[in-house]
Lab assay of single mutants.
Amino acid sequence: AVCQVIGMYDYTAQNDDELAFNKGQIINVLNKEDPDWWKGEVNGQVGLFPSNYVKLTT
């Protein structure tokens, strides 16, 4: 993983390639090539999510 982030809001996947997560959930970021849509993993599920829905862990 590149880094870990925390969901600031609940996110519901809109497409099959997206990653759903809940507020407060830890997401392992796998790829930040696109500044707006990062690739991440939660509980074995991998997908894209909007980078503005998360904050970096300290």
Rank of each mutant, 00 (worst) to 15 (best):
L30E: 00
Y11H: 14
Q14A: 10
V46P: 07
N22R: 14
N52A: 11
N43R: 08
V29S: 02
V29K: 04
M8E: 15
F21Y: 00
N31D: 15
L56D: 12
K23D: 01
E33Q: 13
V46F: 07
F49T: 01
V42W: 02
G44C: 04
G7K: 03
D36I: 12
Q45H: 08
A20M: 06
A1V: 13
I27H: 03
I27S: 01
V5T: 06
G44W: 02
N43M: 06
Q45P: 03
T57H: 14
F49E: 02
A1M: 13
N31P: 02
Q4D: 00
L48A: 07
V2E: 13
T12L: 08
K55I: 09
Q45D: 14
V29T: 03
W38L: 04
V2M: 11
K32M: 13
N31R: 08
F49P: 02
G24V: 01
P50I: 05
I6M: 12
D17R: 14
P50M: 02
F49C: 01
N15W: 05
G40T: 06
K32I: 00
V54K: 01
N31W: 10
I27V: 09
P50N: 04
N28L: 07
V54E: 00
K55R: 14
L56M: 12
V5C: 14
D10N: 11
I27T: 01
C3R: 06
N22P: 13
G40W: 00
V54P: 02
T57Y: 13
K32F: 06
V5E: 02
G40H: 02
N52I: 08
V29F: 07
A1R: 12
A20N: 07
P50Q: 00
D36R: 14
D10R: 09
D16E: 14
Q45E: 12
L30F: 12
N28S: 15
G44N: 11
N15F: 06
E41W: 05
G44M: 01
D34R: 12
G40E: 03
F21T: 00
T58P: 12
N52H: 07
V29R: 01
K32L: 08
L48S: 10
L19V: 10
N31F: 00
Y53C: 14
E41Q: 01
I26L: 15
V42Q: 05
G24R: 01
L30M: 08
Y11I: 06
I6K: 10
W37S: 03
G40Q: 00
Q4H: 08
G47W: 02
A13T: 09
T57R: 12
Y11T: 06
D16V: 12
I27M: 04
A20C: 11
Y53P: 04
V54M: 03
A13Y: 06
N31T: 11
T58D: 14
M8R: 15
A20E: 12
V42S: 13
N22F: 08
S51N: 07
T57D: 13
A20S: 13
D34A: 08
V29Y: 07
Q4Y: 07
G24S: 06
S51D: 02
D17A: 09
A1T: 11
N28C: 05
I27G: 03
D34M: 03
Q4I: 08
W37L: 09
T12K: 11
V46D: 05
C3P: 01
Q4A: 02
S51F: 00
K55F: 05
K23C: 10
S51Q: 07
Y53E: 04
L56Q: 12
V5G: 09
V2Y: 10
W38M: 04
L56E: 14
Y53R: 13
Y11R: 08
E41A: 06
N31Y: 06
E33K: 10
T58H: 09
G40K: 02
A13F: 06
N15A: 12
Q14K: 15
V42F: 08
I26E: 10
W37K: 03
E18L: 03
F21L: 04
T58E: 15
P35T: 15
C3A: 07
F21N: 01
M8F: 10
W38N: 05
K32H: 08
K32D: 09
A20I: 03
K55Q: 11
Y11C: 07
D10S: 12
K32S: 11
G47N: 05
F49Q: 05
D16W: 04
V54G: 02
D17W: 12
V42L: 14
I27P: 05
G47C: 00
Y9V: 15
Y11F: 10
I27E: 02
N22K: 13
T57E: 07
F49V: 08
G44R: 02
D16K: 11
V54L: 01
T12M: 11
L30T: 07
L48D: 03
G7Q: 01
E33V: 09
W38Y: 03
F21H: 04
D10G: 06
D17T: 12
P50K: 06
I6H: 02
V2H: 12
V54D: 00
G24W: 06
A1S: 15
G40S: 02
N52G: 10
S51C: 07
N52W: 08
L48N: 11
E18F: 07
N52T: 13
W37H: 01
V5H: 05
V2K: 13
N22E: 15
Y11D: 00
G24H: 03
N15T: 14
N22Q: 15
K55A: 12
C3I: 11
D36T: 12
E41N: 01
T58A: 09
N22M: 14
S51H: 07
V5A: 13
V2P: 11
V42I: 13
A13C: 03
Q45V: 14
I27F: 02
I26K: 13
L19P: 02
G47E: 02
G47S: 02
V46T: 09
L56A: 14
P50R: 09
N43E: 11
V2L: 08
T12A: 13
Q4F: 04
I26Q: 09
N43H: 13
N22D: 15
I27A: 03
L48F: 15
V42R: 10
N28Y: 13
Q14F: 01
P50L: 01
D10Q: 05
G24F: 04
A20T: 15
C3Q: 05
C3S: 07
D36E: 11
A13I: 04
K55P: 02
K23N: 07
Y53S: 08
T12S: 10
V2A: 07
F49N: 08
T58V: 12
A20R: 10
I6F: 05
G44V: 03
F49M: 04
K39V: 08
G44L: 01
D36K: 14
I6L: 07
D16Y: 06
V46C: 07
G7I: 03
W38T: 01
P50F: 07
D34L: 05
N28T: 15
N15S: 14
V2D: 12
E41D: 00
M8N: 06
E18G: 09
V54Y: 03
C3Y: 11
D10Y: 02
V42A: 14
M8T: 14
I6G: 05
S51I: 03
G24I: 04
V29G: 03
W37Y: 13
T58G: 14
G47R: 03
K23V: 11
F21P: 00
A13R: 08
I6N: 03
D34E: 08
Q25H: 12
L30Q: 10
V54F: 02
T58L: 11
I27K: 02
V42M: 12
N52L: 06
D34K: 11
D36F: 11
L48Y: 13
D16Q: 15
D17P: 06
C3H: 04
N43Q: 08
L19M: 04
D34W: 01
P35L: 12
Y11A: 02
K55E: 12
N43K: 08
I27R: 02
N43G: 10
E33C: 07
S51G: 01
Q45T: 11
V54W: 03
V29W: 05
L56V: 14
G40Y: 04
N28F: 10
K32Y: 09
V2R: 14
V5N: 01
L19Q: 01
